[in-house]
């Protein structure tokens, strides 16, 4: 190894670290303001104002919440399994943050452009389930334990339709690399896979909401039955870690929807043919618009739909979503062979 190659490696590592810092900072800001806009959007949907006190229109509310969480007392149950109790929120957050590394935000900007990007995100989302299950177990509390068990069953059940719904996208793009999936969409006559893969898209959206434990699939933390579910015994900053992980999970699912079904940072060619000035808009704007639209959809559903019963949740996953996703794969494969 010569000095030149060492310098080259060092520069590459430096660029990667800078990229990680940028993505991390932007993701944290997004999480902070996702909580603010969630309260605002749901407030206005329920004819309330939402947070108004801290700063103009409550704009500084996320910082106030963060400071409060940071300085709260860290309570640990006396009979908790302490090492596992400490570990659970870290696993949950790390699994969510790691997925951010393979998401292409715009042409050429991705921390790790790996060939198995899609599978990597599946792997990390299944790792996140451990954070939930062992936090419920280690807390040594009935509410947390039941929440953890429910969540384990839910995440395992809904990972299958989520994976199957994306197989159609893999078949159409012919790749597992997220950048190549976006490029394949830009090349295709539809411009985005949400049009030919509409069935897969609907299955993915439902499964994504269930994967992130959001209403109407938020049984693991059903307030009226389980207080707060698996993280009921966590307080202060450990609670904040779970909160961060959950919101980053939402952003990852939204990014996946934007990348795999809505064309990522590109817009369909037939739109730029009609309105050529739109092609000068930077790709990150389109990507963020798609992600924000999806996040808004999450809030909208939370404000509209009541929670499902547990058996309904399982029936939707196993009896409707999985067969529909399987049929979608067969049809997509046949179309790919025949056309």
């Amino acid at each position: 190894m010569t000095i030149d190659t060492l310098i080259h490696i060092a520069i590459n590592i430096g660029i990667t670290i800078i990229n990680i810092a940028i993505v991390f900072a932007v993701a944290m800001l997004h999480v902070a303001y996702a909580t603010y806009f969630e309260r605002k959007v749901i407030g206005h949907m329920q004819v309330r104002l939402g947070p108004m006190r801290v700063g103009p229109h409550g704009l500084l509310q996320p910082f106030a919440d963060g400071i409060k969480l940071f300085f709260k007392e860290d309570v640990i149950p006396a009979n908790a399994d302490k090492p596992v109790f400490y570990l659970a929120p870290v696993i949950f957050l790390v699994a969510a943050l790691t997925s951010l590394a393979v998401i292409p935000y715009y042409q050429g900007f991705v921390i790790a452009d790996i060939n198995i990007g899609l599978l990597f995100i599946f792997a990390m989302s299944s790792l996140g389930a451990y954070g939930i299950i062992i936090s419920g177990w280690a807390s040594n509390s009935k509410y947390a334990f039941l929440g953890g068990l429910r969540s384990a069953a839910q995440v395992i059940s809904y990972e299958i339709p989520m994976g199957l719904s994306l197989v159609g996208v893999m078949i159409m793009a012919g790749s597992l690399n997220l950048t190549e999936i976006v490029n394949a969409q830009h090349e295709s006559p539809y411009g985005m896979f949400a049009i030919p893969q509409i069935v897969g898209f609907i299955v993915f959206v439902i499964a994504a909401i269930a994967e992130t434990n959001r209403t109407p699939f938020d049984l693991p933390e059903a307030e009226s039955e389980l207080v707060a579910g698996y993280f009921v015994e966590y307080s202060g900053f450990r609670f904040a870690l779970f909160f961060l992980g959950e919101y980053i999970g939402m952003f990852i699912m939204s990014s996946m929807a934007a990348i795999c079904f809505l064309g990522g940072w590109t817009i369909p060619k037939y739109i730029t043919d009609v309105l050529p000035f739109l092609s000068y808009v930077p790709g990150i704007v389109w990507f963020l618009l798609k992600v924000y639209a999806f996040i808004f959809f999450y809030y909208w559903i939370r404000a509209t739909v009541p929670r499902y019963r547990y058996d309904q949740l399982m029936a939707i996953g196993w009896k409707i979503l999985i067969p529909v996703a399987l049929a979608n794969i067969v049809v997509t494969g046949l179309v790919k062979i025949l056309l």
Partner: peptide, 25 residues
Amino acid sequence: AEFIAAIQIIVYAGAILVLYLFAIL
């Protein structure tokens, strides 16, 4: 063998071990 690595995590860590954990709980 990147595909095998991803499948190792998804199938063994993500599915089989979670079921073990579920039973152990």
